[in-house]
Nucleic acid binder design. Structure first.
Lengths: 153, 153
DNA sequence: CCGATGTCAGATCCACTGAAATGA
DNA sequence: CTCATTTCAGTGTATCTGACATCG
């Protein structure tokens, strides 16, 4: 080990915002690495989850719900359609719209991604026991619910 | 308002890793926006904090401590030296080394950045009371301490 | 070896096209 | 009925950042 230890400055770790930012980035990075092994990124999982929870969406609705740029939705859906995780079809009522629906293969894939997510949680939250994890989850849920458009760039 | 409400899929919010990633990104973004008003980024604050807490460093030591690429330390120190927040000087004991030291102006700047950080905390953690914030901070501290190099990209 | 410059890839954002619906 | 406006999917580009690579 080095004499100049890799100690993070207390001035930083004293701020909850810093800890949130750091642990969040670590969690995000670890999850992204897992998904990358299957050629997917975080947005792919988000789209699959939205379709699983709320049924078929127009691409525009996906963009609204997930707060992604509509042009990026196109690419994500493209990449999900290639392995057959989602299907595109024209809305007969409004032929401008494209209905995106989850396939059985997509649902299976989502289940797998959730397992990966749990593995990441076990790695990142290793220092915490079950009760503490539940507490953390509850607190973060409320913080997340409090985020409105003003503070989510 | 839209009939298709902007509800995040429960399949995502059920995962602590997702909440961590999202709230962390929001916190990071909000802080970065504040610092940007002063022409600074997160790394600048990290370097100032390291110098304040541990005294002068060689650039290599800064890179080790903060886990940044040494190449990038150069630019950050450059940008901190321009407004006079840090000073480069030769180490009198070992004249090969370049010592980076905090100036009084830099210390003042850091104090201001910490105030910004507290403002961001009050905004992001608005849903939580003082006790809950303390609990969250304690839990995140332990999670942060558990992160090793393997999971910090 | 350390500091400095340059390059590369990924993500986000923005502008534009063409098709299709809507309303005057 | 026709024309202008709006909305949607899709394409391409600009920009910014973070990580990496090479030079002195």
């Amino acid at each position: 080990m080095d004499a100049t230890a890799r100690t993070t400055p207390p001035t930083l770790t004293a701020h909850t915002v810093y800890l949130l930012s750091r642990t969040g980035k670590a969690a995000r990075g670890a999850l992204a690495a897992r998904l990358a092994e299957q050629g997917l990124r975080l947005w792919h999982m988000a789209v699959l989850a939205a379709l699983a929870d709320f049924g078929p969406h127009a691409q525009r609705e996906l963009a609204d719900r997930l707060a992604i740029d509509p042009s990026d939705v196109v690419k994500v859906v493209d990449e999900l359609a290639a392995p057959g995780y989602v299907e595109r079809s024209r809305d007969p009522a409004d032929r401008r719209r494209v209905r995106v629906a989850l396939t059985p293969a997509g649902r299976t894939a989502l289940t797998g991604l959730e397992r990966e997510t749990e593995a990441v949680r076990d790695a990142v939250l290793a220092p915490l026991d079950a009760r503490e994890r539940a507490t953390l989850h509850a607190l973060l849920s409320r913080v997340y619910a409090g985020l409105d458009g003003s503070s989510t760039p």
